[in-house]
Amino acid sequence: MIDLDDTDRAFLRDLARDGTLSAGELGRRHGLSQPSAWRRVRRMEEAGILAGQRVTVDRAALGFGVTVFLGIKLATKGRVSLEDFERAVAAIPEVQVVQHVLGLFDYRLRVVARDIADFERVLRRRIMTLPGVGQVEANVLLTEEPRPGPLG
C-alpha cells in the first residue's frame, strides 16, 4: 500500500467522477504540471489503486426502467453447489450484479427489466428456475443517489 496525500485523493475523486480526465487536466485543476500529474496517476495504477476506466450506461435510456434487488436463499446447499448456482445466474443477461453475502440470504442480485411485467417474466422463467433457489425477496429501486464513497 502506498501513502496518499491530499492531491492524490483529489485526483481519485476527480477520476471516480470522470475516468477520461487527462493528466494535463488533472494537473491544471490541482496546480501541477502534466508530467507531475501523470507520474502520480501512474504510481497509483502501478500500486493497483486505479484499476481501469468505467463507462456509465444509462439503463433508462436503453429502455430498462426497473431495477430490483433480490435476496436469494438457497434451499439445499448440500445438493446444489454454490458454483452451480453462480454459473447458472451468470447466464441471465438481466442480472447485472451477483453478490455472495453473509446473512439472511446467500446471494444478492441486481436485476434490470423494462418494466414490472418484464421483471415478473425474468423472475418466473429465469430466477426461480435456477438450481437450488429457495426463498426470494425482492426490493424495487425507487431512486438512487451515487455517493463519492470514502474519498469524498
Rank of each mutant, 00 (worst) to 15 (best):
H30V: 06
A51I: 07
A91N: 00
A60C: 07
I92A: 00
A10V: 04
R39G: 06
A90E: 02
L70K: 11
I72Y: 10
R29S: 07
M44K: 06
E46W: 00
F69R: 09
G19S: 15
S81P: 10
G65T: 10
E45H: 04
Q34A: 12
R42D: 14
G71M: 03
F64W: 14
A23R: 01
E86Q: 08
D84R: 04
R40K: 14
G24L: 03
L12P: 04
E45N: 05
V95Y: 00
S22A: 10
V97K: 13
G52Q: 05
A16S: 15
V55G: 04
G65V: 07
Q96Y: 05
K73I: 03
L15I: 13
I49N: 02
T20Y: 09
G52T: 05
Q34P: 02
R59L: 14
W38T: 08
R40E: 06
S36W: 09
K77W: 15
G78A: 15
R40W: 07
A16M: 10
A10P: 06
V41W: 05
K73G: 12
Q53W: 06
E94Q: 14
P35R: 10
I92V: 06
T56N: 09
G24P: 03
L26W: 03
I72P: 09
G27P: 09
R39L: 13
S22Y: 03
I49Y: 01
S22R: 10
G78D: 14
K77D: 13
W38N: 14
G31I: 08
M44C: 08
L62G: 05
W38D: 11
T20P: 00
A61M: 11
A75Y: 14
L50A: 05
P35I: 11
E45Y: 01
A47Y: 08
V57F: 12
R17P: 07
G27F: 11
T56P: 05
I92C: 00
D18K: 09
E45R: 11
F11T: 02
V95K: 00
R59Q: 11
A61S: 12
R54G: 07
G78K: 15
E45D: 04
T56S: 09
V66T: 15
G63L: 14
L82C: 03
V89G: 00
R13Y: 03
D58G: 02
G27Q: 10
L12Q: 04
I92H: 00
E45M: 04
R28Q: 06
D58A: 10
T20G: 09
T76A: 14
G19V: 13
Q34L: 02
I72T: 09
L50C: 05
S22F: 01
A37T: 01
S22I: 02
R17V: 12
R79S: 13
S81A: 13
R39I: 10
I92G: 01
R13T: 12
I92R: 00
V55C: 03
G71D: 04
V95L: 00
L50G: 05
V95F: 01
T76R: 15
S36I: 04
R13Q: 12
L70A: 12
Q34W: 02
R42Y: 08
A23V: 01
L26I: 07
F64N: 03
V57C: 06
